[in-house]
């Protein structure tokens, strides 16, 4: 019955269309991986270069669309909370069956892969001898497998959402009923906050001095710690409720859709930071741009989160 939602129908149709385009690209990519030899001047190599041009164009368009599809997925899942009993936000809908949380994780992982492919493709096209052609298409093969798996999981997940069985939502998933401290490493909120700002500072230092391995570590850690900091500390100031802990309610209209900005900047900052480390051996302008983008996104993320806390304190004179 969940398929009666227009948003779901649109989502699945777009997913199917994108997968078809990727399948078309795959048809061109396989011979390129097998026979690519840039130095060769035979008709086959020229034909492969033409096919590569077409394939990378299709893949770029499709993957760029995939990036836009993740916020749409979050928006769609949030909207479905109206149809699922007990769900008040995307947390309840994602927890409606065993696939939801895994699917969301998979989508984020694919997004990281998509970003890497786009950067690699750009580097390849900027060089005079297409040095990363085979590598980028091998990465595409891995992405294609993941995206095909994701599409199957989308169907499984959406078709398994019961609209008659009540589900648990954020208050019980992230709330006080959770046994023990939900914050990792048994950290207190104060310690979590100190670690959060320290990691942010480390990310900035790594970006400023272009230190790849620190950027890799600090940004990966900031994504992990940042998630908990938002859910268990900053979220309280966004919701202005000391008991409301949820990563999804902030995606809703009553909170100005600020969740999209928060999670978007956290993931983008983390991605650019990790990518800058991975692409550091190339020593190009791409790497410098990635460091700058990472610093920019991380700073925006920290500013947005911190602003809520300061604003609450200045308006009310107390901390939550």
């Amino acid at each position: 019955m969940i398929f009666l939602s227009n948003a779901v129908i649109v989502f699945l149709l777009v997913e199917a269309l994108l997968l078809s385009l990727l399948l078309l690209a795959l048809y061109h990519v396989i011979p390129i991986i097998r026979h690519w030899d840039f130095a060769d001047t035979s008709p086959r190599q020229y034909a492969l270069e033409k096919r590569s041009y077409l394939a990378q164009l299709i893949i770029f368009f499709t993957l760029a669309f995939k990036i836009a599809l993740l916020p749409y997925f979050a928006y769609m899942i949030d909207g479905l909370s109206l149809m699922v009993p007990g769900a008040m936000c995307a947390a309840g809908v994602l927890g409606a069956n065993d696939y939801g949380a895994f699917l969301l994780g998979l989508k984020v992982a694919i997004l990281f892969g998509v970003g890497l492919w786009i950067i690699l493709n750009r580097r390849d096209l900027q060089a005079s001898d297409y040095p990363y052609t085979r590598l980028k298409y091998l990465l595409f093969l891995a992405l294609f497998a993941l995206i095909a798996f994701e599409s199957a999981l989308d169907w499984l997940y959406l078709s398994s959402i019961a609209t008659t069985t009540p589900v648990s939502c954020c208050s019980s998933i992230y709330g006080a009923s959770t046994l023990g401290s939900p914050i990792p490493f048994g950290l207190s909120k104060e310690e979590l906050l100190i670690l959060f700002y320290l990691l942010y500072a480390l990310c900035l230092v790594a970006a400023l001095y272009s230190i790849g391995w620190i950027s890799l570590f600090a940004n990966a850690a900031l994504i992990y710690i940042g998630y908990y900091a938002v859910v268990y500390f900053f979220g309280l100031y966004i919701y202005e409720l000391p008991t409301h802990q949820c990563p999804f309610c902030m995606l809703q209209r009553e909170y100005g859709y600020v969740g999209y900005a928060i999670w978007g900047t956290l993931l983008l900052g983390g991605f650019f930071g990790i990518a800058s480390a991975l692409f550091a051996p190339l020593h190009g302008s791409t790497t410098r741009a990635l460091y700058r983008l990472s610093a920019l996104c991380n700073t925006l993320f920290v500013l947005i989160c911190s602003t809520y806390v300061l604003r609450y304190y200045f308006l009310n004179g107390v901390w939550l």
Binding site: F38, T41, E49, L125, Q126, S128, Y130
Partner: peptide, 11 residues
């Protein structure tokens, strides 16, 4: 010294 037939659009 350039292999013109192999250049990408940008180059």
């Amino acid at each position: 010294n350039q292999s013109v037939a192999k250049l990408s659009d940008l180059h």
